[in-house]
Amino acid sequence: MATEEPAYDPTRTASWLVCTACGTQFPTASRDEVTTCFICDDPRQFTPPGGQAFTTLDELRASHENTWTPIPCDDRLMSIVTEPKVAIGQRAILIRTPKGNVLWDCITLLDEATIEEIQGMGGLKAIVISHPHYYTTHVEWARAFACPVYLAAEDRQWLTQSSSHQVFITETELDLQIDGTSSGVKVLKLGGHFPGSLVTLYDGRLLIADTLVTTPAGLGSWDTDAAGNTRTRPQGMNSYAFLWSIPNMIPLAPDELERMWNILKKYEFRSSHGAFLNVDIVKSEAEMKQRLLESMQIQIKYSGYGNHTMLKETTG
């Protein structure tokens, strides 16, 4: 990394302002210098009814902790979540590959306990962040672990800090390299929520953040009825929604879904793992792809586009 990049020092940035709504850190402690969060002023996000407010890493370190939850279907994946909830409340997912650990998405709280836990598992070789709502304190994470952090080039305008650790993805599909060889982690730029919104694929596990939003119908079980009889899943149920704004429930246009599908349809995956705990869908590869396509078709149909070409698409 560049020699001018400051070394990680938890005290140097401990008093810098952190937006309580999205968890983004600003490179100043002055509440006169930063009075609003431009990420939350964007129509995709919001400020709470009580208005704009800031905290600091110092305050969070004194009152919060990160918790670790293995993802049941694959012990190579570990969820990291802050308790009590901070800002949006998303999880980061630690992916343990034979080439080294990759962190998918980022959370605001970085403390010594978290650093020790990750270092005990071999540290981090890379960080990949799905979209600007999860940029949080990623520069601090990158400095602490001396690793690159991969961000979509299209979303560079949403950064509050610049760092030589940042690597900007210009490709639609990136085979993530660690020490010059493939890590097995594939980063796909689907866009939609943000122009550069990403998903990550590792050995059949699709990490979707909220580029694809997991729905209650996607998590629901219709295997049996109350009497214990075997059932099949009713027709017309979606598993994902595709939104320009998740909190404000603004959907994506059909042509955007078609573009996303044309990227994703080339890949096989047997599970998806969304932005929060307990939003994991685990099925066969054939069913996962069918659920993805049906979800897109349901959204397009009920948006009033009954003649859209996507409605004729099949997984075959």
Rank of each mutant, 00 (worst) to 15 (best):
P6L: 09
Y8M: 12
R12S: 15
S15H: 14
W16D: 15
L17V: 08
L17H: 06
V18W: 11
C19E: 04
T20H: 02
A21Y: 04
C22I: 07
G23I: 07
Q25C: 09
P27T: 11
V34M: 15
T35P: 00
C40N: 08
D42P: 02
D42A: 13
P43V: 12
P43M: 10
G50V: 00
A53M: 10
D58G: 03
D58T: 15
T69R: 12
D74R: 10
I80V: 11
V81S: 11
V81H: 14
T82Y: 08
T82K: 09
V86A: 12
G89Y: 13
G89E: 07
A92E: 03
L94E: 01
T97D: 01
K99I: 01
L103V: 01
D105K: 03
I107E: 06
I107G: 03
L109W: 10
D111Q: 09
D111H: 08
E112V: 05
A113M: 05
T114D: 06
T114L: 14
I115H: 07
E116Q: 14
E117Q: 08
Q119P: 00
M121F: 01
M121I: 05
L124K: 09
I129P: 03
I129G: 13
P132S: 11
H133F: 07
Y135F: 15
H138V: 11
V139I: 13
E140I: 02
F145C: 00
A146R: 14
A146N: 06
Y150T: 01
L151M: 10
D155W: 09
R156G: 02
W158T: 00
L159A: 12
T160R: 13
Q161I: 04
S162G: 11
Q166L: 11
I169A: 02
E173R: 06
I178V: 10
G184F: 01
V185F: 00
V187G: 02
H193Q: 11
F194W: 15
P195G: 10
P195A: 15
V199K: 04
T200N: 02
L201E: 03
Y202E: 01
Y202Q: 02
L206G: 04
T211C: 10
T215M: 11
T215E: 09
G218W: 10
W222Q: 03
A227I: 00
A227Y: 03
N229E: 13
T232P: 00
T232C: 14
Q235W: 09
G236W: 05
M237T: 07
S239H: 10
S239C: 08
Y240V: 05
A241P: 01
P247T: 03
N248W: 02
N248C: 05
P254F: 04
D255F: 03
E258V: 07
M260W: 03
W261H: 12
N262C: 06
L264C: 06
L264I: 10
K265R: 15
Y267R: 05
F269R: 12
R270Y: 07
R270M: 08
S271V: 09
S272D: 08
H273L: 11
I281A: 09
K283F: 07
A286K: 14
A286S: 10
M288L: 09
K289G: 09
E294Q: 15
E294L: 13
S295G: 13
K301I: 06
S303Y: 04
N307Q: 14
H308I: 05
T309I: 14
T309F: 03
T309H: 15
L311K: 04
E313G: 00
T315I: 15
G316S: 11
